[in-house]
Simulated assay, not measured.
Amino acid sequence: MAERYSSFQKGGRMWFLQRVTAVFLLVVLAFHFFLLHFVHHADEVSFLASSGRMESLSYYSLMITFLVTATFHGVNGVYNALVNQGLTGTKRTVIKWTLVAASVVLIAQGIRTANAWAGIGLY
């Protein structure tokens, strides 16, 4: 029988965060689909309407939290999948820091976009 291998240490911090972020993402995605596919139909969604939603602090905060959570969940999952496939040594370190850098850029650009929609300027 094949052994089960996972780079996550069961009960470890990253294992726990991967599960918590998955639950959060499911709830926020359900909210997104309900709001933007049932309450407002596709022909009603516009940049102006999106901008109006982003001006609400609660919606803006939820979208920023969603951005950070989705980035962490995705990058952590990709990294651990690569480790499970046997990534070790220098390559593992390079991939880890490349993914960290890509995450920082993604989050920074996402916040810039959210700020633009919300009408928040950095002056």
Rank of each mutant, 00 (worst) to 15 (best):
R112K: 03
K96Q: 08
Q109H: 02
S103Q: 08
Y5E: 06
G119H: 04
F33D: 06
V23T: 07
Y5P: 05
V78Q: 05
Y123V: 14
F72A: 05
A102F: 11
G52D: 07
A42D: 14
Q9I: 15
V105G: 00
A81Q: 11
N76Q: 15
V75K: 02
M14S: 12
A116I: 04
S46Y: 11
A70T: 01
A49E: 14
V104W: 00
L17T: 07
V100Y: 09
R53L: 14
L62C: 11
F16V: 15
V68D: 09
A101G: 08
W117R: 04
V23L: 11
I120N: 12
A70F: 06
L57F: 12
Q18K: 12
R13N: 11
T21A: 05
E44D: 15
I64T: 11
L106K: 01
K91R: 10
M1A: 08
G119I: 11
G119M: 07
F16A: 12
H73Y: 14
K91G: 15
H73D: 10
F72P: 04
Q85P: 08
G110Q: 11
G119C: 12
T113C: 02
G12N: 10
N115D: 13
R112Q: 09
A42K: 12
T21K: 06
T69D: 03
T65M: 15
R92N: 05
T98Q: 04
V45L: 15
V28C: 03
F24V: 03
V20W: 10
L29W: 14
F47C: 09
A2Q: 05
L106E: 03
A101H: 04
E3K: 09
H73W: 13
Y123M: 09
T71G: 03
F16I: 15
T90Y: 00
R19A: 14
L35V: 12
V75A: 11
L36H: 07
W117Q: 01
K10A: 01
L17K: 08
V23N: 00
I111T: 01
T69V: 15
E3W: 08
Q18L: 12
V28W: 00
